[in-house]
Structures are given as structure tokens and as C-alpha cells.
Simulated scan of single mutants.
Amino acid sequence: MFRSTGSSPDTFTQMAWEVDDIEAVVSELRRRGVVFEEVDAPGFPTRDGIAEIEGNYPSKDARGERGAWFRDSEGNLLGGGQPVR
């Protein structure tokens, strides 16, 4: 990790976590007041804040990812992803 000398346009995910159960994580974070982004982009539209993304995972044993994104208090885009095996 290092301090950036530039600025990000916050149009892409700044940080993400791998989770075991994306529905449980989204539900718990919503209970705590987190608002999830609804994305309507080719290849990964969201439904109830969770996207099904075919083939978007670096692991050889995963065939895709389920992801959800939210913004922190500074507007940075953060996310969580669950590998689809």
C-alpha cells in the first residue's frame, strides 16, 4: 500500500473484499445503513444490488463472480465479490 500522488475519478472499484456469502454480507451491511449501487452496464447488471458476472474472476477454479458495490463517506467505490464455482 502507498500514498497516491494523483487522484482517482472514482469510476472504478478502489478496494474489494472476497466474501463467502454475498447475500448475507449485503443484507448485514444494508441493516447497518450501507446503500448499494445499482449498475445497468453491459455484462453485469445488478438485481437487488448484486451482479452476476460470468467469467470475471482470476481464480482458475471459479467460473464467475457475484459482486456488489457501495461508496464510502468520501465517495470511493468499494465492493465485495463471491466466486462462483
Rank of each mutant, 00 (worst) to 15 (best):
A41M: 08
D20A: 03
P58W: 06
E28W: 05
T46H: 01
M1I: 02
R32V: 07
G55W: 12
S7K: 14
S59I: 08
S8D: 13
A51E: 03
A51T: 03
V19N: 03
Y57C: 14
K60H: 11
G67C: 11
G55I: 10
D61Q: 12
S4E: 13
G43N: 09
V84T: 06
R30G: 00
F2K: 12
D20F: 01
G67H: 00
D40H: 11
V26G: 01
G6S: 12
V35D: 07
V26L: 12
N76Q: 03
F12P: 00
W69F: 13
A68C: 00
S4Q: 08
T5Y: 05
D48M: 05
N56E: 07
D61A: 10
W17Y: 11
V35R: 13
R66W: 13
D40S: 10
R66M: 06
F44K: 10
V19C: 02
D10F: 15
I53A: 10
A24S: 14
L78D: 00
S27K: 10
Q14C: 04
R63Q: 13
P58F: 06
E74T: 08
A16I: 05
R85K: 06
K60I: 12
E54W: 05
K60D: 15
A62Y: 04
V84P: 06
P45N: 11
G80C: 14
F70P: 00
G33C: 04
A16W: 04
L29G: 00
T5R: 07
D21V: 08
R3C: 11
S27N: 10
S7C: 08
I22F: 10
E52L: 13
I50H: 04
A68T: 02
